[in-house]
């Protein structure tokens, strides 16, 4: 049974293992330098952000006690023992939650429509010229880099308090975020149908309608649904700056220390977000399988 593993001569082994050791050492050195740089950055950032571990340690109890307190009613009983008292404002909150969902819906819908009409200008394959592409891309970048709450703050001054500025803020942010994703989808399409349509005399928008849209629609819808889910979360805090929805009640409850209300509203928001997560995930999976079925 000649299964012996061939053994290299010692000089060769020595050379190889020396090379291995030096390669290992070099790798270790890079890692060490990386860790050192990271440590220095952490120290600096900790200094700037006024991280105070002693304070955190001393007040850590307050987080648990706060989280505990929001689950007790004013009369000292656990919230779960008296659901009716806990959710005393259910009707009002459900109204506000419904508002929040509609803000997210309208913002997503208008944003998706805007993104649809803008995304083709931002692609390599369908933009009319490079200048158009450049400006479309910069515009989309601007829309998604400025946080929606900032738009909401400005719009509240311009349009007045209420859900209208919330919808507009979410819409603009959605145009930026979806426009980028839509453009990426369009850049990955099969160009042959587009060439076919153009060759038979179609205009740019006719070619888009009959050759591009059928290819990208499932993907667009799936991204829009994902965005809707994100926007529900965003709409839940629009009320913080006076732009409508359940955020208004939440910030009031937190600021005025209505403890049991805080937990009641938070749980409502979490439940709503989870349900929408589940539903949109279902629809998205169906859309994706629809696309693969083609």
């Amino acid at each position: 049974m000649a299964h012996a593993i061939p053994r290299l001569p010692d000089t060769q082994i020595a050379a190889l293992s020396a090379a291995y050791r030096s390669a290992q050492a070099a790798k270790r050195r890079t890692t060490l330098i990386g860790v050192l740089v990271l440590a220095i950055l952490i120290m600096v950032a900790g200094r700037v952000a006024e991280v105070d571990l002693v304070k955190l340690w001393n007040n850590a109890g307050q987080l648990t006690s706060y989280l505990g307190r929001i689950f007790y009613l004013d009369n000292g009983k656990l919230v779960f023992t008296d659901i009716a008292d806990w959710y005393w404002g259910l009707g009002r909150w459900m109204n506000r939650l419904w508002d929040t969902l509609l803000i997210a819906y309208l913002g997503t819908l208008f944003g998706a429509i805007g993104a649809f009409f803008l995304c083709f200008a931002a692609t390599i394959n369908l933009a009319v010229n490079p200048a158009q592409r450049f400006f479309a891309r910069r515009f989309l970048e601007f829309c998604r880099t400025v946080p929606e709450i900032v738009f909401a703050l400005i719009f509240v001054v311009a349009f007045g308090l209420g859900p209208v500025p919330g919808v507009l803020a979410i819409m603009i942010h959605t145009v930026g975020a979806l426009g980028k994703l839509f453009a990426e989808v369009v850049e990955n399409i099969d160009m042959k149908p587009v060439e076919g349509a153009i060759a038979s005399g179609a205009t740019r928008w006719q070619a888009i309608r009959y050759s591009v849209v059928p290819q990208v629609l499932p993907n667009f819808a799936s991204y829009a649904l994902l965005r809707f889910e994100i926007n529900v979360r965003g709409a839940s805090v629009m009320g913080f700056v006076g732009a409508g929805g359940i955020g208004q009640d939440l910030i009031e409850a937190i600021r005025k220390f209505y403890y049991s209300d805080v937990s009641a509203i938070l749980l409502l928001i979490i439940a709503a977000v989870m349900i929408i997560d589940l539903v949109t995930e279902r629809i998205r999976h169906r859309l994706i399988s629809l696309e693969h079925g083609r």
Partner: peptide, 28 residues
Amino acid sequence: DSIRGVDTLIWALIWINVVGLGPFAGVL
């Protein structure tokens, strides 16, 4: 999932109750 369902701004409000106003609450 439940942590993700709550927006950063809400967490900021809650942490302010624990460590007070300032950037540390933002980090948390």
